[in-house]
């Protein structure tokens, strides 16, 4: 991964959030990719604040199942989302080898619990394809696009939709009903 990072970095594509244009009109963006089970997901590298190992979190009252609780990130109180659970599967059996990707959304910060970080990808935005119709709308709603990298399919996450308030309340209501 480190090697790859260096290699990509030497290409020197600007990676500002507004997706700066590169040579010949092509726009390049960099993504951090990570895995949950067999699936691979990615978020824009500009959104990633840091990546840290799983530590115990503090459970908040009546939190939705996919919320693991909050942790202390150098004085900031950061909520942690279990991505596996968010996608309708069981809760992750989190261990010290699991990874939390800390992501900034505007001035809000959230952590996403995943299995492991796999790669840093440099992607031509023209190669990002629309999300195909899936059986599970749950998942589809949380994605902004699909890209293939090194013969793997990587789904790009819309982090903001993972946490939007309505989703929180809906999920909370659902959990109460259940």
């Amino acid at each position: 991964m480190t090697e790859l990072q260096v290699k990509e970095a030497t290409v020197g594509y600007p990676t500002s959030q507004g997706a700066a244009s590169g040579v010949g009109g092509a726009e390049y963006r960099q993504f951090v990719s990570f895995t949950v089970g067999q699936e691979e997901y990615a978020v824009d590298i500009m959104q990633v604040r840091e990546i840290k190992g799983w530590t115990e979190v503090t459970v908040l009252p009546n939190q939705p199942p996919y919320m693991r609780g909050v942790l202390n990130l150098r004085g900031l109180i950061v909520p942690i989302i279990d991505l596996r659970c968010r996608f309708g599967q069981t809760r992750t059996e989190a261990t010290a080898s699991h990874v939390v990707v800390i992501v900034a959304l505007g001035d809000r910060i959230v952590g996403v619990l995943v299995d492991m970080v796999s790669d840093i990808l440099t992607v031509n935005t023209q190669d990002i394809r629309a999300v195909p119709d899936m059986e599970s709308r749950d998942i589809q709603d949380f994605l902004v696009g699909i890209v293939s990298a090194n013969e793997r399919m990587v789904a790009i996450l819309a982090i903001e939709r993972l946490t939007n308030t309505r989703a929180l309340t809906d999920a909370a209501a659902a959990s109460v009903a259940a």
Binding site: L60, V70, L76, I77, P79, R108, V110, T169
Partner: peptide, 11 residues
């Protein structure tokens, strides 16, 4: 500390 900085208010 504020919880609401990064999370919704909790009753």
């Amino acid at each position: 500390k504020s919880l609401e900085a990064n999370y919704d208010p909790v009753p």
